[in-house]
Design a protein around this nucleic acid. Structure first.
Lengths: 211, 211, 211, 211
DNA sequence: AATGAATGAGGATTCATTCAT
DNA sequence: AATGAATGAATCCTCATTCAT
């Protein structure tokens, strides 16, 4: 009895360890430039073992991605519980900072779009994993939308389409962060990513506010 | 004498043809998934010929990128000439539409950041070409900035930092377009990219306006 | 004491079960394309267990082969007991039908020659098992030879070399059956394997008959 | 002009050289046990070059097979031209010897059936090449059938179905040769393959003869 | 006896780049 | 200048076998 449980636990732990190692290398080198050998070495396991836990390099990659989004979702859900205690505009700013911290830890997450775009990944992974990944993103956006709606209900924001505004905020934030991700680009612009992000968010929120 | 000129002309024309072919395939498959054979076939040339004109796959890729930005720059410069005839806020909206059209034709341009980020490209290309690429981007942003400044001077916009606002607009626009680039993501959001772009731009400009 | 016997029995039963499962997959996919995982799954056992009963994939394969030939031998021996009741030419026809039925059930047995030929197997299996496999084949041929000799003694067949004729019959039967084993080849020839087998046997027996 | 011709010639010569090298190793080790490296080394070329001429290991294998059958076809066609000069039964014996010589040089050709049987090959090769391979086999059988028909028309053979008899002869010959292909099996039987082949053919022809 | 996680050698295939013609 | 044949390093994935539990 206990044996099976322990095995289960160990198996899960190993899977987590592989994901952690994979994140490390994928974020350093990108999907195409990362080899399974790289991941195996980082995880201090043999190549074959990686394939015991993940069917292909692509599935491993998307799993890393999904896990990351899950973390973000958890944070957002925790925030949701503070609905009663804070004003909606404060919550939005908190989300922004949360998102920024996430971006700093997992910048690669933003580049996955490029791979989706070219169909580089789609055909090679389990549809279930694929769907889960999309679902997570939806949940993130939904939390933002709910918060905005709350602000509207409270008379803090104008009666805009909360979902639309949430997507605007999310997209704009992503865009400015990505733009300043490149070191040289940042020097050209002459300000840190955080500053531009704050500024952009400020502009958007100001627009949403009830006059 | 005339011979040399003709040669020069032909050489340039061929280079343009290769760039055109390369754009076609790079945009369809992405850098890593594109082979030189793909480019050669598209250009109806032999593999070896490609290497007569470009030192490596990476240099070819960045050249495509640079050329694209050049086109955008030209359009923006043409706009600059209308400074006297139109209001700054109208010009900004025109730039937005121009940028959207550009994005529709060359979505890949947005993904190059991912490659820059991983250093996938930098070490393999001629520094001169590299610098030119950055310079082009600066010019684009400068035009937007100039237009905003003009709006401020005209009392149309609040006295914000034009350069900062230009970067906000550019980054936000890029972000929302990229976000809705993925077909499935677009379905999840439930609105076309253009609509979200228009909405986001509207919000930002409203914020900039003199009350 | 009784415990040991039961253990012995169980062990044997399990070995049989593995052989049965192995036959199933080996005959479907061939030696090289079959994995031990395939066998384990079919047997509803773990990979490791297979290795408790058979030293290697090759030994398992040859065991399957030997077991099949043993079945054929048993049938042939049963036939031998009818020596007194039937004419030799009738017995030969019965053997032919028996062989055809065997071929239908175990076509793979004919292909093992290819593996023997390339030495693909020899070095990897227990010599005892190997010798047993050859011995079985000899027994089959001996039964046919004995029947032919009986026909000769009875004045039914011409006084030919019974062993030689037995080998002719066996080889020819094998050849025509294998030839029509391939679906497309069969379509090309335009007749079912059984028909060609009957025809060929008829021709050979006619030749052996006393005029 | 001459350049293109020479290139063409060289290309063909290289392809032939690869086929020759491939035959060598395939016949020694069998399809599954042969690596492309083996072939490349034998051909004194690099691995990549092999793939320049053949799409996959399987296609190379079937090409070797087809080329072998082509040789046999040529020999058979040459024989056809002697129709006027020799009796049909003599021609059949000549074909038998020709087939035996072929078997001695290319024993592997007989084992290809095993690979066809398991579908090991079919899905991985160009249908055109595949069809050609079947077509060649048909031609071989047709020549034998034509000769038999000639013998029937000449009153040398009984009025049997020539196509059916041709398939019987071909299959039987293949079967006895394969059976004695294995060295140990041959020792068990106690006679060389040629002797059993001659004997079997004799029996079959005797059966076909007009009494 | 049974399990199944871990290993790592092995092999097919691809593709950027070179170079002789 | 243009070609395209040749190269061989690189990489994904498989699977027979071992071994600790």
């Amino acid at each position: 009895m206990g044996v099976q449980e322990r095995r289960e636990r160990e198996k899960h732990a190993r899977q987590e360890a592989i994901l952690e190692a994979a994140r490390e290398v994928f974020f350093t080198k990108g999907l195409d430039q990362t080899t399974i050998d790289d991941v195996a070495e980082q995880a201090e396991l043999s190549k074959g073992t990686i394939y015991l836990y993940f069917k292909s390099k692509e599935e491993l990659y998307i799993s890393v991605f999904t896990q990351g989004i899950e973390q973000l979702t958890q944070q957002l859900n925790a925030l949701r519980d503070q609905f009663g205690q804070r004003r909606a505009d404060e919550l939005v700013l908190q989300i922004k900072d949360m998102y920024y911290a996430f971006y700093h830890k997992y910048p690669e997450y933003f580049y996955i779009h490029s791979l989706l775009y070219h169909g580089r990944i789609k055909g090679k992974i389990d549809p279930v994993i694929w769907a889960a990944s999309h679902q997570q993103t939806r949940i993130c956006l939904q939390v933002v939308s709910d918060i905005l709606q709350r602000g509207i209900d409270d008379g803090l924001f104008r009666p805009v389409d909360a979902w639309k505004a949430a997507n605007s905020l999310w997209g704009a934030a992503t865009g400015v962060m990505m733009m300043l991700d490149d070191e040289e680009h940042q020097q050209m612009v002459g300000m840190p990513a955080k500053e531009l992000l704050d500024y952009t968010t400020e502009l958007l929120i100001a627009s949403l506010r009830q006059l």
